[in-house]
Design a protein around this nucleic acid. Structure first.
Lengths: 147, 147
DNA sequence: ATCTGATGTAACAAGTATCGTTACGACAGT
DNA sequence: ACTGTCGTAACGATACTTGTTACATCAGAT
């Protein structure tokens, strides 16, 4: 599976914005978040754009512009983020239709579709159990470097 | 997520071999399986090669060559197949290490690693619940075309 | 009204993975 | 020796992610 880091970076951005806002700031810029995630601001803007479409964050333009949470971290789950940034299914079917004249070729797609649906439902359930509030809590619980 | 069809095709191949053997044949050829899956025999050989490395199938060479199950369908689960054909993790970390001087950058990777581990463990548990015997049963239960 | 700093997007390159395909050597039974 | 199949390398097409540059757009501040 060509695993990507979209969910990780999106969670990173949300946790960063959430913490920044708790420190009294109104908005966070893509540049600040990109510096923390060690990537390019455009990558952050692209991801946050998808989160905005999902109603998780808001953005301001003009002077004093930036990003803010549209919901409390407590009410955002990894499932919300996952659905916002990972559109496709977890497992794909055959690229070309299997031989419908063969018993296996005929029945394999409905069979696997049903099985995959159950599995993805479980995955979504697990993702829904993790709030971004918990993510931030875990982040802050990481042991500091030795002094 | 760039979903691929490796798990689907591998399950297809195993179900096909299993059914074929129940019909009294000793071995199945990559060409027969490829015809059913509507793909190229080399694609099947590549996938079955990985399943062989995992101890799920065996292959014979020479004349009368082909593939056979190394275990009963009942004892093979989708987790066995998944582990054989999908090496990587489901979600990736940052490509480049985040800023360790930032609180979030410092704590995000251990946090997400722990969360992802739990989620992948659940996924594996779900995959382990589905045997290839059940896959074949579901395949054969698919409604036939109207006569 | 202009300046300024940030968003919103398009466009492109590099890297990586899957999938299909061709080619050919290796093998074992007839 | 012949034959059919595996085993595997090699290549191209396609697609996705990530990083990057560039630039128009916006809205508050001066």
């Amino acid at each position: 599976m060509s695993a990507n880091s979209r969910l990780t970076i999106a969670a990173h951005a949300l946790a960063w914005i959430g913490l920044y806002q708790r420190q009294g700031h109104e908005v966070a810029t893509s540049e600040q978040i990109a510096a923390s995630a060690n990537t390019n601001p455009v990558v952050i803007r692209r991801l946050l754009g998808e989160l905005r479409r999902a109603g998780l964050v808001e953005s301001r333009r003009g002077a004093g512009a930036g990003w803010s949470l549209a919901r409390e971290l407590e009410s955002i789950t990894l499932l919300d983020v996952y659905e916002a940034v990972e559109p496709g299914p977890l497992f794909a079917m055959h690229r070309t239709a299997p031989d419908q004249g063969c018993v296996v070729g005929h029945g394999i797609q409905p069979a696997m579709r049903g099985i995959y649906q159950d599995i993805e439902e479980t995955l979504r359930h697990e993702l829904a159990r993790v709030t971004l509030e918990k993510v931030l809590r875990d982040v802050l619980a990481a042991p500091r470097r030795p002094v």
